[in-house]
């Protein structure tokens, strides 16, 4: 009788510990997936992709989307962003090597606009319409307007400051 109670207690404890551990793993995984988007630094990617806008982290689009984008840089969302062949090949390889996997791939936008993907829209569904129109924001592509450490690939909630 006593033995059974101890056994049940031990089983409960084990289940509880497992649950807590699983919770910790999940939370860390989420933080890694949503907050930090660090890829090994690449000077050419940072300089070329970052001259007209923030150098968007490669993890925000799947490989096939980057491939398509890098093959039409002379018509890049209404502007000519063409590169010489060597830089183009180098940056395309870097983007594809570090591209999105998992749910961001499934939610990849047909338009190639990161901000029109289901994943992006879901992550931003709490943002008020007025915020997007704020003069300091101007465009959903302007990550750094709210994500104060976006330049370092840090999109964590802790570093969000929404302009009022």
């Amino acid at each position: 009788m006593k033995n059974t109670t101890t056994k049940r207690w031990m089983l409960d404890m084990a289940a509880w510990t497992l649950g807590v551990l699983a919770g910790i793993v999940l939370v860390t995984h989420e933080a890694a997936a949503g907050g930090k988007l660090s890829a090994p630094a690449d000077d050419r990617w940072k300089a070329e992709c970052g001259s007209c806008h923030l150098a968007y982290p490669p993890q925000l689009l799947p490989a096939q989307a980057w491939r398509r984008m890098m093959s039409q840089l002379d018509r890049h969302f209404g502007a000519d962003a063409s590169l010489d062949a060597a830089d183009r090949a180098h940056i395309a390889a870097y983007l594809e090597r570090n591209s999105a996997s998992g749910r961001r791939v499934r939610a990849s936008p047909e338009s190639l606009r990161i901000t029109e993907g289901a994943w992006f829209l879901h992550e931003h569904d709490e943002v008020a319409p007025a915020t997007w129109k704020h003069p300091a924001v101007k465009s959903a592509a302007n990550c750094a307007a709210c994500h104060t450490r976006a330049e370092e690939g840090d999109f964590g909630e802790r570093n969000i400051r929404i302009p009022r």
Partner: peptide, 8 residues
């Protein structure tokens, strides 16, 4: 200056 599209 300021980029006409992105504002950068």
């Amino acid at each position: 200056g300021k980029h006409a599209k992105t504002g950068k």
